[in-house]
Design a protein around this nucleic acid. Sequence first.
DNA 1: CTGAAAGCGCTAACAA
DNA 2: TTGTTAGCGCTTTCAG
Lengths: 331, 331
Amino acid sequence: MEGKKVSIVDVAKTAGVSTATVSRVVNQLGGYSKETEKKVLHTIKECGFRPNVNAIGLRTRRSHSVGVIVPDITNEFFAKIVRTLDIFFIKYNYSVLICDSNEDPELEERHIQDMFDKNVDGLIYVSGMEAISSLVKNPRVPVVFIDRSPKNAEFVVQSDNYQGGYLAGKELCEKGCTRPLLIRDYRMASTIQQRRRGFLDALAEYGKTCEGNFEITILPDYKSAKEKVAEFLGEKGCCFDGVFTTNDMMALGTIHALAEAGYNVPGQVMIVGFDNVSLSEFCNPPMTTVAQDTEQMALVAGEALLKLIRKEPIEQKEYVVPIHLEVRSTT
Amino acid sequence: MEGKKVSIVDVAKTAGVSTATVSRVVNQLGGYSKETEKKVLHTIKECGFRPNVNAIGLRTRRSHSVGVIVPDITNEFFAKIVRTLDIFFIKYNYSVLICDSNEDPELEERHIQDMFDKNVDGLIYVSGMEAISSLVKNPRVPVVFIDRSPKNAEFVVQSDNYQGGYLAGKELCEKGCTRPLLIRDYRMASTIQQRRRGFLDALAEYGKTCEGNFEITILPDYKSAKEKVAEFLGEKGCCFDGVFTTNDMMALGTIHALAEAGYNVPGQVMIVGFDNVSLSEFCNPPMTTVAQDTEQMALVAGEALLKLIRKEPIEQKEYVVPIHLEVRSTT
DNA sequence: CTGAAAGCGCTAACAA
DNA sequence: TTGTTAGCGCTTTCAG
């Protein structure tokens, strides 16, 4: 009895009804008696019937699945979003297709095509590149953006990046920093712009001016930060006493460069990171950092996509998730 | 021209051939003239034809996709495997369906069913629970196991866990440890057993005996380790001078418990972890740990699955990936 | 070398 | 309330 797959025809036959009726029951479309329903449901269970998703997809052009595109699944921030989304959608019987673009536009393009080929009913696009062109090409499927806000986006959810930058600046100023330094991703994504703006505004509020070399722009990783800070230290000495980096790995690189050059953190230089990756809690000293609420972001995005898919009205096109400062030992 | 999807019929029509011929060309089955091939290929490109995967799946019962099941995508170790697999399979035009079982047997069961429903051509199962029953139920699709070796497995790839444990024990002994302690996952998975065995064998080689309370068994996370070690320290004092934990988070918990109790690492107690997560490099002090070659594991698994899917002969049923000790500052 | 046609499993008119 | 039936887009014999 485990030999062949049972189809809707088999169910119909053994239940003594038509395939249409079985289909109605399976999809809970109503228009059948309580009795037939019970009968059909019973035989379905009996013979272990599972609808063939390909046949359904072929007929309906829907897949009951959504795609999630992240630039790096290896990054805890994205991994958490993916996980939350996965758990969210399974509740609604949607399966999620995860795809790691690996920061590679070509790969990303390919993955997106792949998802369209699979007839995803919707897409969640997390902080990707600008190669959104191919997304827009397909107006059939709704797209929700996390952490990135292209024009014409149907729905965008982002952390309150401005507030994050502001909190970082405020923390530094209140703890007595007088010569602040900003280290940021050289690519000026909108999120980075907002963090920067918030930071500068906080400084201004405390009467700090932003002198000449107060800003370093680099690749946003540990190594770049460490090297660049070491170099900076070598050239100009420690002409700053507080640093805000636009992510935690850069903060860590900075901490280590400082430590190796013999400076004390937070004694001589304070540091605030961004993201609150678990590393920031366990490094030495534990890092003060701006924490994003990944779970909330994912949930909001999931809910919005679901509405878009169901063509329910959506009250707002944008959602800003609150952010908070996790104060630890580098400030 | 962007209005409707073009099907194989459209291509056939405009190319002036039959759908059968188009199909043959698309699938490179041969049996057509160079000329028709060129003509068909050209019109395919011309009108942007993309085969409908549902129709193909419905006909062939194959999906050209494989499933990957991990217990926690948020864990760097698994995320890396997923990413490598993804990149590997895309080369062969297979798409990979990632699923995070979230250490939840019910969710896992559901995800697996889902994958079968989607007609995955193969499955890679990474260090999951024992709920493999449902896997075995479906003898149609080949399964490759990573980091777990159930009986009857078609193919298993694992790190050389025994060697890992051995290296940890040796390192401790050579650096002068006399009272070793083992802290391990309370669940005795085969991988943990092997690490333990290797560790004990190394100790024996150096004439160390394993006295009474030399082994602590806990949940394998930071918090459990930290609490348990603190408690242990409180009850018996520091009756050990070297610790091997079966993963890095436990090692970190141990380090922190020790630090808080005022013990010096590695001065009074040495520590060796397992996994080489990036945290182990950045914590304080940077941790000596046993490094698994995740990339190699993923690649071997991917290659094996591909062979299984293609029904090519497979020379061995098991593959052991070398491991090495990353010596840092806790030993 | 090429085409005609059956049918994979399901849904959705339309009829009854 | 239920059944009949025509496809969805593709592969795959079987004929030619």
